[in-house]
């Protein structure tokens, strides 16, 4: 029996998931439902990520991936369901738990008439960084994403890939323990994609592994970076498995089989 076939019989293969090893749950979404008028985009999604887990979220266009990411980033309110970040329910500390999350989306969230350094300083200050710590962190991030030489150039003159790299620096500037990455490799060249992979997999400044939820259309790259794969289709999680259960050559058929059901 091929690995693909192993998962064909059960919609969500819990047995094949990596063991949690009593790690703390960093992100827990339960029964997340989102409707726009009569149209329901998400239908009771349950998803948990433990500390250090890197999960790739796959799904066809319109499956609800971006909507789910926006809800997890607290940019949209779910119609129903609960959300906890690092064990703190959203209802308890809606504003302050936003500092536990870093997000990259299709939008870069950058100001094109500010320089890269000014953009990072602005976001750093919003997250409560200041003084030498902020200067040091900004300099560090610019080096990390390879933009230190063009740090004082306005973002307007950056290519899409450079903007995406700066957006990555913005997302990790405040050292969030949870990263939500919605197609973070858009516009990145090979070198920048490696940079992204390094940032995702390295521990944060406190030595803790990052907890990452990522959507991508690049299955091969996504599999290499993740330790769990979740498939969202028509607003439901239809299948999930440990990434090491899937070889790059059979993930395609596994995936298409999942979304056809």
């Amino acid at each position: 029996m091929s690995k693909t076939e192993q998962f064909n019989n059960s919609p969500v293969s819990e047995a094949a998931l990596p063991q949690a090893e009593n790690k703390p749950v960093m992100l827990r979404a339960q029964g997340i439902t989102k409707s726009f008028g009569h149209f329901t985009v998400l239908k009771g999604v349950n998803l948990s990520l433990t500390l250090g887990e890197r999960v790739i979220l796959l799904g066809p266009n319109g499956a609800g991936k971006s909507t789910l990411m926006r809800i997890l980033a607290m940019l949209a309110r779910p119609s129903a369901g609960t959300l906890e970040i690092a064990g703190i329910p959203l209802s308890e500390a809606r504003a302050s738990i936003r500092s536990l999350i870093g997000i990259i989306s299709h939008l870069t969230y950058l100001y094109e008439d500010l320089t890269a350094r000014e953009n990072l300083h602005f976001y750093g200050k919003l997250y409560g960084l200041s003084g030498e710590l902020l200067d040091q962190r900004v300099a560090e991030m610019l080096v990390k994403v390879g933009l230190e030489r063009r740090a004082d150039q306005r973002v307007r003159y950056y290519s899409r890939g450079m903007q995406q790299r700066l957006s990555l620096a913005r997302a990790i500037l405040h050292q969030p323990p949870v990263l939500l990455l919605d197609e973070p490799d858009t516009g990145l060249d090979r070198h920048a994609a490696e940079m992204l992979a390094q940032i995702i997999t390295e521990p944060d400044s406190q030595g803790q592994p990052r907890t990452v939820l990522m959507t991508t259309h690049n299955l091969e790259r996504g599999l290499a970076l993740s330790n769990r794969v979740v498939v969202l289709s028509s607003g439901r999680i239809v299948r999930e498995t440990a990434a090491n259960n899937l070889a790059a050559d059979d993930v395609q058929s596994w995936y298409y089989d999942a979304i056809r059901r």
Binding site: P24, V25, M26, L51, A86, G87, I88, S96, I97, S99, L100, K125, Y127, G128, L129, H174, Q175, P177, Q206, Q208
Partner: peptide, 29 residues
Amino acid sequence: MDRARTAKQDRELETGSTRASFVLPAYLR
């Protein structure tokens, strides 16, 4: 869970965003 809460508390210390002492300045900032 405790570790997760500790991570948050560490962050609060680093960013000075504890509710009691920092809400107003953070808001104004």
